[in-house]
Design a protein around this nucleic acid. Sequence first.
DNA 1: GGAGGTGACGTACC
DNA 2: ACCGGTACGTCACCTCC
Length: 834
Amino acid sequence: MLTQFIPIDYDYFDFQGRNYVKIIGRDEKSKRVCIIDSCPVFIWAVLKNNLPKEKIDKLIKKISKIQLDSKGRKTKVEKVELQEKNYLGKQVQALKIFVTNYKDLQEIASELDFKEIEKRRGHDLGFITHYIIEKKLSPLNWYEIEGEILNNSQEFGGIDMALEVNTCIKVDKIKKLEKQKEFQPKVLAYDIETDSLEIGEGEILMISLVGNKGTKKVLTWKKESSKKPNYVEYVKDEAELLEKFVEEVKKDSPDFLVGYFSDGFDLPYIKARAEKLGVKIKLGLDGTQPKFSKGTSLRAKINGIVHIDILRFIRTAYAQYMKSETLTLNEVAKEFLGDTKKPFEHRHSSDIKKIDWTEYFEYNLHDSVLTLGLFEKFWPDMLEFTKTIQEPTFDISRAGLSKYTESYILHNLEKFNEIPQRRPGYNESAERRALGGVKGAFVMDTKPGLYEDIAIFDFTSMHTSIIISHNISSSTLLDAPELKNLGYAELRKKYHESPETNEEGTKYYFTKKPGFFPTLLKEIFELRKRFKAEYVKNPNPITKARSNAFKVLSASAHGYIGFFGARYYSHEASAAILAFVRKFNKETISKVEKAGYKVIFGDTDSVGFLREGKSKQNIKKLLEKLNSELPGVMHLEQDGFFKRGLWVTTRAGTTGAKKKYAMLDEENKLKIRGFETVRRDWCQLSRKLQSKIIKDILQDGNGDKALKAVKKIIKEIKERKIPKEDLIIKTQLKKPLSEYKAQGPHVIAAKKMKEQGIPISQGGLVEYYLAETPNSKSKLVRDKVKLLHEAGQYNIEYYLNKQILPAVENIFQVFNIDIKELIEGKKQMTLGDF
DNA sequence: GGAGGTGACGTACC
DNA sequence: ACCGGTACGTCACCTCC
């Protein structure tokens, strides 16, 4: 039997003491196929240096005899091979110890307690990762599979009979297709509506299903609607609703079942209700129910169908580049799809009128439409991430940034004949954390003012290009003892020297012989460049997203090296990278100054300076000159020209504020950084006013219009004309309520919510406003806190002095105008100073 | 009981 | 715990007089 096959979902099982993978995918005719395969299981034992051959032979004999009999399994060492390998870039002799069962590798490792063995490695990858590395059957690539069809076979305990697939194949040969084909996955999005936000507390009223192959329905047992839209299907009760849901998923037969926050809400909710009602949710192709595993948060897996919680993917891969301030479906859909949720005011089902049920159905259906839309929007990225990192999409869509980097490395070690480093244990992680951080990037002091004609240069993927260009990593670091044996001339010739990493002047050295980590990073770096060029050539949301995705992957390498949980962590490497970052930033600043320009800002990888009448051609020449002096793949690029820019002082006083500026580009587009305008914990009123005056000032070059706008708002506040929604302050609850030492306003607001039965927990957004409290003498802000539905008048003094004044004061200070006097109404302002 | 410093906390920049 | 250092700003909380 020969078939084309694209692997989508990975699972594994044990049969007669051995491990097998069970991979669900599609063939060239889009039929569902399951393949079953196995691979050699082994652990590496790195030997001590210069062991005599006899000793090694003796050791091999001893190891070959190791047997385990535990957990109802007999596991043994099958064979032992002596190999020349690399470990952390150094040549070593290592024993490749083949074992019958992956699950017992840990226990086998503890049996390998021989003095000839220096280290035991390669047993903490996870069986699926190990399989993908060994057999090179990577997710979402096309393969030609040769094997034997299992048809009602007793092999593997009749596994094929229980599987809802067209074909089940026991693999013989795997060959990657030279010509990769496109893959259009079948996708089904779902969303539930319930009578409670607490998992399983209220009934599930309806479930919507929207697929990319035509499915579009709302299932419900609430037959109270005055008219039934044609996409609505009635069932008897909640139990039947759940059964019907499973049935419809099976009928649609998607590769991906997608929800929004479905790991944390929809699927756990369905599970809880199903348990209560005695219904089995047999969504898995093998008839199993969803499995929930707990890390820092819940993950819900369905065998054979990839369950995607699209929120999780967006959060890790995109949140930092998004405008959305919260990751609610509504806001994220607005940003990426230009569409929003349907308006519907949630009430308990007993409170919903006949006429409104239709609206509720529509609302429910549309949530799935949006969820599907988001999946399709991010599918190219998940596909690229999956293919690049070579871990299943289920994991990719939930993983953190360090996992992306690490998996990429693990799947590419073979090229370097490298034995994988192990994950740090609990104690090792603790030690790393105790070391503390390293000195970070340089941020230049600024001088407040309104500037004209600004040019910005910034380094392309600065940290990454530094790592690549100076061959920085844990394995290329020169050990302290070796350092002592080298003369300075030799040191400089054979090693990259870092700038001083701390006040004591510590420097680190990295060999010039290319290490596997920097080499691999270079590949990522090239991909990032390719996708960015693709985006520039063909700008559309997909090329943009992909370019961003690789930006994320490329940019997280440095964070990975400094992350205490990383296999290839290195405090020294991290310190050295940052030292280079400071050096190159400072050097660029001084070179630009030497070329005759006035530098006005610099932060980590960027430098901004005044053009002072010089042509763009001149700027370009300067850029070329600077680039010619940079090592390796380091590159400085032009980040646009700006007509005007505004820098202010800090609230406290006279120094210029860092990370806080606004600029207007040549297309009159604003770039606002750090100002209250871009901070979600300030009320809309301040944010809108501030962004208006910034815009006015940057466009006009003076503050006339801006001042009028401020006066107008002050008047409106005093006359109580401001609508409450403009006064809401939103703050996230970053930890459990009980852990707060300081009772800040948002903590008080959250406590009020709790008292009133409004769900709020860690990670939730607290919304409140500040009200007049005529009967209270308290000066504390927290005593003025009111929730939005609580009656009260907004506190005029608070909004004037704590929201409007701070948002505009420093801006007008640039023109020597004192807004405080205006607010207090003491003195009529003149515009003479403008 | 007000001034002023400090720590807790949240958010943004890169 | 799931990339991390630099920086800003508010508010509570403390000490001091």
